[in-house]
């Protein structure tokens, strides 16, 4: 394999990885940017998405149904959690959120174990995406290309949603001055529940999409939450373009790190994060901390 095709394949690998990381990070950063909540349960929603995707595929026989149902159910649970518990904590300091969502991680993780069992569950790649294409004579799975496309579509979609729609306007306004928005007659609580639900739904979407590659397992949440935190911190907490940039950066470090320094791949991501924080404590595109 010559250098060019090697680089092409590795870069596409990294981009497909970046798409998964982006789904994970963007929800967390949206929730943090608008609500100032660090959602520790984010990785668990990602895991929930993978398991929901598995069940949807089993019940309906269609991967696409899972892609719709998984985020909807997870988003609903997230929104309900915000309405039931988080809403009562807005007057307390930030750490209360961190701890309540940590509690949710334990509870939700255990419920998932009770419902789906301890075994890793394999999800089939849908037939239409299961093939292989040849890029510069190198085989490459279609599903990974699909992930890159899905990541790009969702990124553009969120961006347009935030910039062009009325709801997006409300969300941006709430993040800047919630009291003022409230005074103008907007139900801020509803916006917040919606945002929390959307953020959790995006994590679940990432989970459904990751399931055919990783299979749905109970270990997913732990890795996912750490990855998500790293992305949000590198990109800058609350910055949407930052999460996209950080997802791509981290994915490239992971893919090329695993190839060239397999022993240090795990540490490379954290070193990157420390480096970014020392140079820019607020993250690449975040406000100064």
């Amino acid at each position: 394999m010559d250098l060019l095709s090697f680089l092409l394949v590795q870069c596409l690998n990294a981009l497909s990885q970046a798409a998964l990381l982006f789904f994970l990070g963007v929800g967390l950063t949206l929730i943090f940017g608008i609500m100032r909540i660090v959602n520790f349960a984010h990785g668990t929603f990602y895991m929930l998405g993978a398991f929901l995707g598995y069940s949807a595929v089993r019940l309906t026989g269609s991967f696409w149904a899972g892609l719709v149902l998984g985020p909807l159910v997870a988003g609903g649970i997230g929104a309900a959690f915000e309405m039931g518990l988080l809403r009562r904590l807005y007057k307390r300091d930030d750490s209360a959120f961190l701890m309540v969502t940590f509690g949710l991680t334990l509870v939700l993780g255990e419920i998932i174990r009770l419902v789906w069992g301890v075994d890793a569950l394999q999800v089939q790649v849908p037939d239409s995406l299961s093939g292989i294409v040849f890029l510069l004579d190198e085989p490459f799975p279609v599903y990974r290309l699909f992930l890159v496309a899905a990541g790009a579509i969702v990124a553009v979609g969120i961006w347009q949603f935030l910039e062009r729609t009325r709801l997006g306007l409300l969300i941006r306004a709430t993040s800047q001055n919630a009291e003022m928005v409230h005074a103008l007659g907007v139900d801020v609580n509803l916006v917040r529940s919606g945002i929390f639900g959307i953020g959790c739904g995006l994590a679940a979407l990432g989970g459904v999409l990751a399931a055919p590659l990783l299979s749905a397992s109970l270990g997913m949440a732990g890795n996912a939450i750490i990855d998500a935190f790293v992305i949000v911190i590198i990109g800058g907490m609350g910055s949407f373009p930052g999460s996209l940039l950080a997802a791509i950066l981290v994915a490239f470090v992971q893919v090329f790190g695993t190839y060239y320094f397999p022993d240090f791949a795990m540490a490379a991501m954290y070193l990157l994060m420390l480096l970014v924080l020392v140079v820019r404590p607020g993250g690449l595109l975040g406000k100064e901390a």
Partner: peptide, 11 residues
């Protein structure tokens, strides 16, 4: 604040 928490987690 929160960034401090995340940094300790990273370490």
């Amino acid at each position: 604040g929160v960034s401090f928490s995340m940094l300790t987690l990273a370490f």
